[in-house]
Design a protein around this nucleic acid. Structure first.
Length: 419
RNA sequence: CGGGGUGUGGCGCAGUCCGGUAGCGCGUUUGCUUUGGGAGCAAAAUGUCGGAGGUUCGAAUCCUCUCGCCCCGACCA
């Protein structure tokens, strides 16, 4: 992609509305654009990040036997009246009417929808466990949206729903998801802290939140110091809670850390609440009705995009971890009128485009502006082509993460990325 | 919903107290220069001052109502 052809409205002005660094950088780098309070349009840079994160999530969910679906975002009220949540959900649910004055809603979560699909098609215990997930936009009419997409009203969430024949099986599924989530966050380059949580409106008795450590986080976490180096099997049994559940008496003798965190994921094992209320059953080997033990599992993808920025930035801009980066590498031609620079840029750009996502800055603007944009957008690797070095046949490769700059020939830099 | 702010060219703001017909910086456009860290010079364009009503010879400014947005609290991925 040529920068001259790329829609990324960058700005050096700090938007007045943005109070936290990720929100500022998302606006300044042209990732998002505000439509209304808590509602954002995602611009090309932002969409690329959402796609990168989504891809990792899909790969890891598929590995544990989850099936990707896409539920309707508009749902009839009847489904929610059946589960009892139509009234219980309150004003956070956006309610709509169609032309026939029928009651609908924009889904804030999908236990009902998942249970409805399940009960229509799954009739036998032999088909369990069943695991459906989707990546789709949700709407919750939050009392107070804030911090950009960190707490938006409309947000992209991966939500999964599992159906197991009995509690033991449901618990195994829960543990598989737990590990899958740890892998997902780590692949994105983040350090997740799983804490025991309340199950809130979803209901149930087993629940963990996955918190990303960040000073701007809204949750306060208390957890055993050794948690950050524990294996996944040990993790579930270590002491880690958010502030609301923290009771100093239960932590005596444990060496605790206290940090702020961003809740990026939340998993629940809640039993038969929905299968029973919605009459979703299968027959067991004796021909008896059984109501599946359910779990639901969410990751806030749009929030995660912001959380990654909270975790990885400096005073110049974003520093994307490779797994979430909108492009793999950016090629910066510092002088578009210098023949050597133009040739080297074109050669490198063409070579890398076959195998990498490359953003090539071919704009005829000042050097400082290009470098500033490159840092602001924060693509992990920058290939810098300027007249001084090009004259001796070299370019510079800068690692945005470490700041390290290496001089190498065009061929070397191409080889570095296409090996 | 309660409390606190705020709304003025694309963005950031001044002007509001003390009414007199809108200004600054950035960005944008054109030309020239420049080219290794948010360029220089010159010229130019862009505003129904959030909206409605009122007071007045005259309203960004005063009054009434209204809407949007931001921050602090309860809720959540």
């Amino acid at each position: 992609m040529l920068f001259s052809n790329f829609f990324a409205p960058t700005s050096k002005e700090i938007p007045a509305e943005a109070k936290i660094v990720s929100h500022r950088l998302m606006l300044r780098s042209g990732m998002i654009s505000r439509t209304a309070s808590g509602i954002y349009s995602w611009l090309p840079l932002g969409v690329r990040v959402l796609d990168k994160i989504s891809k990792i999530i899909c790969e890891e969910q598929d590995k544990i036997g989850a099936n990707r679906v896409c539920f309707s975002t508009i749902q009839p009220a009847d489904l929610w009246i059946e589960s009892g949540r139509y009234d219980a959900y309150g004003k956070e649910m956006l309610r709509l009417k169609d032309r026939k004055d029928g009651d609908f809603l924009y889904s804030p979560t999908n236990e009902e929808q998942a249970t409805d699909v399940f009960r229509r098609y799954v009739k036998s215990y032999r088909e369990l466990p069943t695991f459906l997930y989707q990546i789709n936009w949700k709407f919750r009419d939050e009392i107070r949206p804030r911090f950009g997409v960190m707490r938006g009203r409309e947000f992209l969430m991966k939500d999964g729903y599992s159906f197991d024949a009995d509690f033991e099986s449901a618990k195994r599924t829960y543990e598989k998801v737990f590990k899958s989530y740890m892998t997902i966050f780590r692949r994105i380059g983040l350090t997740p802290v799983p804490v025991r949580a309340d199950s809130g409106a979803i209901g149930g008795n087993m629940s963990h939140e996955f918190q990303i450590l960040a000073d701007s986080g809204e949750s306060t976490l208390y957890y055993e110091k050794k948690l950050l180096s524990a294996s996944d099997d040990e993790l579930m049994n270590l002491f880690a809670v958010s502030e609301e559940k923290y009771d100093p008496a239960s932590a005596v003798g444990k060496e605790l850390s206290v940090s702020k965190g961003i809740e990026a994921g939340h998993i629940f094992c809640f039993g038969t609440k929905y299968s029973k209320s919605m009459n979703a059953f299968v027959l067991n080997e004796k021909g008896e009705k059984i109501f599946p033990e359910m779990g639901s599992y969410g990751i806030g993808i749009s929030r995660l995009a912001a959380a990654v920025i909270e975790a990885f930035h400096d005073d110049r801009g974003i520093i994307w971890p490779e797994a979430a980066a909108p492009f793999d590498v950016t090629v910066l031609n510092l002088n578009t009128k210098n023949e050597r620079c133009v040739n080297a840029t074109s050669e490198i750009y063409k070579a890398l485009s076959s195998g990498k996502e490359v953003l090539c800055d071919d704009r005829d603007i000042s050097v400082g502006e290009k470098l500033a944009d490159a840092d602001l957008i924060g693509i992990p690797h920058q290939i810098i082509i300027g007249p001084q070095k090009a004259a001796v046949g070299t370019v510079e490769l800068k690692n945005r993460r470490t700041g390290e700059i290496r001089e190498m020939s065009s061929d070397e830099v191409i080889g570095r990325f296409l090996n």
